[in-house]
Design a protein around this nucleic acid. Structure first.
Length: 801
RNA sequence: UGGCCCUUCGUCUAAUGGCAGGACAACUGGUUUUGGUCCAGUCGGUCGGGGUUCGAAUCCCUGAGGGCCAGCCA
């Protein structure tokens, strides 16, 4: 992507970069849009260009101003600022004028048939469409009809404006696409001013052109649409015209990103709303507490290519933890509390009713020195809350926390020795007793193993709180792969706990993001940001009445409701006996990947693949061409090459000319079939300089030793680029073969001397490095060195060491 | 089925025709008053076949696999 822009700038095709992000205001932005936003805005920023946020509002029946506001807010939240806010609907008048121009040029016509008929006559991927009786109507009549369409004389669907392109095009998009349809509908911005509205394929390229967009970035599925994009822009606008480039959509495992499915999740009540923290919408992600910079680094890490791929949500989690590790103060919270009663026979705690605890560990302070100043008071009494699964009566293998007879440190406090554990009928821990070990505040006891540091809360001062633990919405990587996506919904995607949090948080800003030690990153649920007004104006349907997700703060005396942003990475392993289990409903281990995901991965192409009969390279040739090909084969030409050349008259003529000019057919054929054919394909035409005579000249230079193969290839490309005859090119570029042994040896020695580490590696047995050194010599000699001689020189130079 | 796009460690992504590298994940150790962080290390890849080349992930052919297109959605 940046390569294209660099070239456009370098070649002066454009003076400055202008991009645009063009959402349709008919839904909420999600993480997939974040990729496009980061790209469009990021490129504009990196190239010191401009970026427009454009509402692609050409369909009055689905769009709504509430979404415009939501989109603006989401883009800003991500940390971007647009240079201009535009609306496609502002261009309706000029778009209409362009449509009239098209009609006047005879490039568009009004079709009076209904939707079903047009659909039926478009043909299929393997059959051409059939023309409408209206297709050959004259421009004047079309213009009249189109004006009457605008004037409101016709009913919805009775007429459309179509581009007149090619009903037999293998690209379905080009089969006379519809440009304008009649919709007697109220538009949220233009009101009732219009009853004809342009379609995407018409409005989008022309909006880009109107705004002077230089690089129009979009996702892969619009690849086919580029043809109509270019067709329109070339007819209606002068250079510099906008150009469209495609990149792969972001797909994240264990969620869904299609608008339809997201709507279904909301409407059917699988989630609490568009900003449910489990949703991949930016509103949901924001409410969950993810900081925007984490989204940006995530998008950076994912990269931009044209290969459709799926991204592991672990990559996002990592970006979130990375952003929060150095910024989130550590506090303690107990999600599933049990009582711990302390005995203090030595009076260790006498006179102490709390400890001052640093808010950040030393390693974070190392990264962010000012974090050293932050601390808070931690009350400490004789009755505490600790986490239920930090205690076991009968510890399973691998259990490293509290159990009878084991000492653990109370984080930031003293070491205690467990003296008793009460369990209920099901074996669940209900209470524990422990004795404070003397002299262990800030110091480890002698001769006593401390098994762990556990988090705790003073029971008398801890604030009651509710914790919302979010997991992936789906249990499988690709919910669409098998059956209805709903059947893969994870019922444990939201787990609510009632517990306690330390009192210090009451003094902090409400939007503080914390790490609850050993649990994860949390922040206070800001509550639904999409208020009732969003529900009321949501044209896609009713928002489900909020249930448990609305802060049930009223039920919690402190009113505190915490959203878990992301878990801590959890390294505790499940033992063979299954004794230890992950306490949080954390993301399932990779081993738990569903069968559907495996199947989606595709069967490796084994067995029968690749072993099929080689097809006849001469199949499908006309008899005369076939005869020519057979003659070449007799002359020693590879049959595949012969077939390729014979199929293309330009190439066949070129080969014949070259042979006529004295070239050996067997030598010339690969140059025609590969190098020359490649030029033909890339340029769409055969460069005039690529004649048989030129090829014969090139091959003569090769034969008499003036050139080696690599130089000849470069020379041929230069000839194709119009730099002159092979001989002239070789002269100008200094491509003549260099086989002076002394010079090559000197170059080889220099290369070896310049790369001692590589030389040592070679002598250590890494033979592949010969190529590396040959490459160095080739570079040093401007590509002139004879490769064989260079390789010999390299080996000699390496042997000298 | 016609056309177009795509294919590099488990995942994502680099490599002017010249040492296949990084990140995430996993795994091993070390540090640690968080089973966190950090540090060190391990595992692991060019879809198959052919061609051109001294040398191919890269260029050419071919096979396989995946995606998109037959809305008056965008």
């Amino acid at each position: 992507m940046t390569e294209v822009i660099d070239r456009d700038l370098r070649e002066g095709r454009v003076e400055a970069v202008v991009t645009r992000f063009p959402p349709e205001p008919n839904g909420y932005l999600h993480i997939g849009h974040a990729k496009a936003i980061c790209l469009d805005f990021g490129i504009a920023r990196d190239y010191d260009g401009r970026v427009h946020l454009r509402m692609d509002d050409t369909n009055p029946t689905t769009e709504d101003p509430a979404f415009v506001a939501a989109i603006e807010r989401d883009v800003r939240w991500l940390g971007f600022a647009w240079d201009d806010l535009r609306y496609a609907s502002d261009y309706f008048e000029s778009l209409y004028a362009q449509a009239e121009r098209l009609i006047q040029h005879g490039d568009a016509y009004v079709d009076a048939r209904d939707e079903a008929t047009i659909r039926a006559t478009r043909g299929s991927v393997s059959e051409p469409g059939t023309p409408s009786p209206d297709r050959d109507r004259g421009p004047a009549e079309n213009l009249d009809l189109f004006r009457r369409m605008r004037a409101g004389e016709f009913a919805d669907g009775s007429h459309v404006l179509r581009a007149k392109i090619d009903l037999a095009s293998p690209n379905m998009i080009l089969r006379d696409p519809v440009l304008y349809r009649i919709k007697h509908a109220h538009h949220y911005r233009t009101g009732d001013a219009w009853c004809v509205y342009p379609l995407y394929d018409f409005a989008h390229p022309l909006s880009d052109a109107i705004e002077g967009i230089t690089h129009s970035l979009c996702t892969l599925e619009f690849d086919n649409n580029r043809a109509i994009y270019d067709w329109l822009v070339e007819r209606l606008f002068p250079e510099p015209r906008p150009r469209q480039y495609e990149f792969a959509r972001l797909v994240v495992d264990r969620t869904v990103l299609s608008k339809r499915k997201l709507i279904a999740l909301v409407r059917e009540g699988h989630v609490e709303g568009w900003d449910d923290p489990r949703m991949p919408t930016l509103a949901g992600i924001r409410r969950r507490g993810v900081p925007p910079e984490a989204i940006r680094t995530f998008v950076d890490r994912v990269g931009v290519t044209k290969a459709n791929s799926r991204t592991d949500p672990a990559l996002l989690d990592h970006a979130v933890r990375d952003a929060l590790n150095t910024t989130a103060p550590r506090v303690m919270a107990v999600l599933d509390p049990v009582e711990l009663l302390l005995e203090d026979p030595d009076g260790e705690l006498d006179g102490i009713d709390g400890v001052d605890a640093p808010s950040f560990p030393d390693d974070v302070i190392g990264l962010v020195p000012e974090a050293a100043d932050a601390s808070r008071l931690l009350p400490l009494g004789r009755r505490l809350w600790i986490e239920r699964d930090d205690v076991a009566l009968d510890p399973p293998a691998g259990f490293r926390r509290m159990a009878p007879g084991r000492a653990v440190r109370l984080r930031h406090g003293v070491v205690v020795l467990c003296e008793g554990v009460d369990v209920d009928a099901e074996g669940r821990v209900t209470r524990a007793q422990a004795r404070v070990l003397p002299g262990t505040l800030g110091r480890n006891p002698d001769g006593v193993k401390v098994w762990a540091a556990i988090h705790w809360l003073d029971a008398d001062t801890a604030l009651p709180a509710e914790f919302h633990l979010f997991g992936d919405l789906f249990t499988v990587a690709d919910p669409d792969a098998a059956g209805d996506f709903r059947q893969h919904l994870d019922p444990a995607s939201l787990v609510v706990h009632r517990g306690f949090v330390e009192p210090s948080v009451a003094a902090d800003a409400a939007d503080t993001r914390y790490q609850f030690e050993r649990q994860g990153y949390f922040w206070r649920d800001p509550g639904p940001e999409l208020g009732p007004e969003a529900a009321a104006t949501d044209p896609s349907g009713s928002l489900v009445p909020s249930g448990s997700l609305v802060p049930s703060g009223s039920l919690v005396p402190s009113g505190l409701v915490w959203n878990r942003i992301v878990t801590l990475k959890d390294a505790r392993r499940v033992t063979a006996g299954g004794g230890e289990r992950s306490p949080a409903p954390a993301r399932a281990r990779p081993a738990a990947r569903a069968p559907a995901a495996e199947a989606a991965g595709g069967e490796p192409a084994g067995g029968a693949a690749g072993t099929g009969e080689a097809p006849d390279p001469l199949a499908g040739l006309a008899p005369a061409d076939r005869a020519a090909a057979e003659r070449w084969i007799e002359g020693g030409v590879d049959p595949v090459h012969a077939g390729l050349i014979a199929a293309e008259p330009l190439l066949a003529g070129l080969l014949a000319d070259a042979v006529g000019a004295g070239a050996d057919v067997a030598v010339a054929a690969p140059w025609v079939a590969q190098e020359t054919r490649g030029e033909l394909r890339r340029r769409g035409q055969l460069p005039a300089q690529l004649t048989g005579e030129a090829l014969a000249e090139l091959l003569a230079l090769l034969a008499d030793g003036t050139l080696h193969a690599g130089g000849a290839r470069e020379a041929w490309a230069a000839v194709a680029a119009g730099e002159g005859s092979p001989r002239a090119v070789v002269e100008r570029r200094g491509l003549a073969r260099l086989d002076d042994e002394a010079a090559l040896l000197a170059a080889a020695r220099a290369a070896v001397a310049a790369h001692p580490a590589e030389a040592a590696a070679f002598r250590g047995g890494k033979q592949a490095l010969v190529g590396f050194f040959v490459g160095q010599v080739m570079r040093a000699t401007g590509g002139r060195a004879d490769p064989r001689a260079a390789q010999a020189a390299v080996r000699a130079a390496l042997a000298e060491g």
